[in-house]
Design a protein around this nucleic acid. Structure first.
Lengths: 337, 337
DNA sequence: TTGTATGCGTTATCAG
DNA sequence: CTGATAACGCATACAA
């Protein structure tokens, strides 16, 4: 009866339900878990909460989990030593999580061996752990980065720099490769598309801009591998009294909330946290529901350029003459965009 | 034996332990919880993760919890409707949490009634829910705000404005009252200490500065009730091409990580997340350990001024003449500080 | 359909 | 101090 079937008198049912409510009864979920063999707990591993990208991802994931009556155990990778991390993973299996989403944009998952050992469903980003019950969310960096480079090319930029994250991580290589491909596609050469390897922090942006401005041929536009660093770039430029976008254009990647309120508001390639969270959650559900195939088809997530005010037509004095005619044309095209 | 007593042969013990490890055995915590009646789960309720203050608090609390083998269930209050919130609280009791820390800086805890009903230990900030097994963490706003005002007074500021959070919340009243008291203490009058009621967002800072600059007697220094808003103030000032601290001084409150990297680096009153987390956690432990008294003595957390570069001597042209002699004196005092 | 017994993996209790 | 056994609170499968 309690489970919703109305075979008894409706009035009696109501009385019982009221009694339950009055006594404040709520089922004990750990007992339920033990009985059913399903904990209704999911693990979520992120890089770190102090990177504003992740709270938004976490929130979306939590919302999804909540509507499906799942709890989530949150763990972050950065600023935790291996010992910390191993303990977290051990706790995940001790709580008998039904699956874990590893949303860290890196492929060093040695610390996940305990999960693999216990055959716990896993969803990862960009690259899959080679095992059963694992599913990849493939982020399509090319779509958004292509748009960004084409946008800059249309604005007349011929020297475009890139600030990458640590290249030891597969995902950062993917972003850089997407950049290099895009930039070749619009006909730019290697010497005009320098890459600086940062570490995705705010501070890295300032360092990168220092590097690029010391170059013989300064870039007229900079694409950063994430927004936090792009804001650092903006800040470094501001300290040097350089105007954005008049003197130099900047595009970020991620589209964190802060991007909109940067100075000037940052044009950026949006990687939707909602999409990412939804992909991860659905992946987990897919993995737990039926006995799934060894390597299910990956879930793809697109990226997309968001134009704000940190990008403008190329107007560098040195190259101004040569590109003059072309520039006015593209500027017009831009305004109509 | 497994529990660490060495009554049997050490070599045998090692073999058993190795066997356990090889089989990948880990105890089932939900079974343990059921048997022992202790879930080893704590609830942590915050305002919202997108306010950078809270991730740092969460991290500290998590570290404490982890070293004591507790799991935490995290919930945020903002951007969740009451239905959401009630469901979260219900889940807390369904998971049989051993206590919950309510770190939201507001006193509207209607949504906590389910916890009270189930007699779950509660730690709150600033104001206590009127019930047993509840403990308050009292933040001493006065200490830090006094330091801030004295600092500004020493720098020669005579018109100091305040941007408060929503005054419907007790805690924001406490901060404002601390401001008003401090400002009276250094001899300033009401008309020279205007208060603008914001909502603790970035945007509120820009709005506040718009308001203050429209005043007949513009303040020469602004104290904000939190850092996010203070950064908004900085941004609003920058858009109006006003120099900080040359034309106007700004002090924040919280000391979030971002404060250090604001432009210029923000002087602020630090409310230590570590202290807050430690107080909350210890409070919870105190409440769960022994059967504690109805209203245990509150735990106090101090605040403290951190001087960076957003504060400087008062140099407003209009008042410069009158205060001239005094200023040079205080400026000297300041440089020696 | 509805009630009843058994299992889930641990802790705790109580004999031995 | 050790070893068996009854809870713990629910799900589930089976009997009525």
């Amino acid at each position: 009866m309690v489970n919703g079937q109305l075979t008894v008198d409706a009035k009696l049912a109501k009385r019982v339900r009221d009694a339950i409510r009055e006594m404040g009864y709520l089922p004990n979920l750990q007992a339920r878990a033990l009985g059913s063999g399903r904990s209704r707990v999911l693990g979520l591993i992120i890089s770190e909460l102090t990177n504003p990208f992740y709270p938004e991802l976490v929130r979306s994931f939590e919302d999804l989990a909540e509507t499906s009556d799942f709890e989530i155990m949150l763990g972050s990778v950065i600023h935790k030593n291996d010992e910390h991390l191993n303990r977290f993973v051990r706790r995940l299996v001790q709580r008998r999580v039904e699956g874990v989403a590893v949303m860290t944009f890196r492929a060093d998952w040695d610390y996940l061996h305990e999960l693999i050992l216990h055959n716990i469903p896993l969803v990862t980003i960009d690259a899959a752990a080679p095992r059963a019950r694992c599913l990849v969310v493939e982020v399509d960096y090319r779509s958004g980065i292509d748009q960004a480079i084409q946008h800059l090319a249309l604005l007349g930029h011929r020297r475009i720099a890139f600030v990458s994250g640590p290249l030891q991580h597969f995902t950062n290589q993917a972003r850089r490769d997407a950049f290099l491909d895009s930039v070749r596609k619009v006909g730019l050469r290697a010497k005009d598309t320098p890459v600086y390897e940062g570490d995705h922090t705010f501070e890295a942006g300032a360092a990168a801009i220092g590097h690029f401005l010391s170059l013989r041929d300064r870039p007229t536009a900079i694409l950063s591998s994430n927004d936090l660093t792009a804001v650092g770039v903006l800040r470094g430029l501001s300290e040097r009294r350089m105007q954005v976008p008049e003197e130099i254009s900047v595009i970020g990647f991620d589209d964190i909330h802060m991007a909109e309120f940067a100075h000037p508001p940052l044009s950026t390639v949006r990687m939707s946290r909602e999409d990412l969270a939804a992909a991860a959650f659905q992946g987990l559900m897919r993995l737990t529901q039926h006995s799934s195939p060894y390597a299910p088809e990956p879930i793809r997530v697109k990226t997309q350029l968001v134009v704000r005010q940190s990008t403008g037509p190329q107007t560098n004095a040195v190259t101004a003459k040569a590109d003059s005619a072309r520039r006015t044309g593209t500027a017009a095209a831009c305004s109509g965009e």
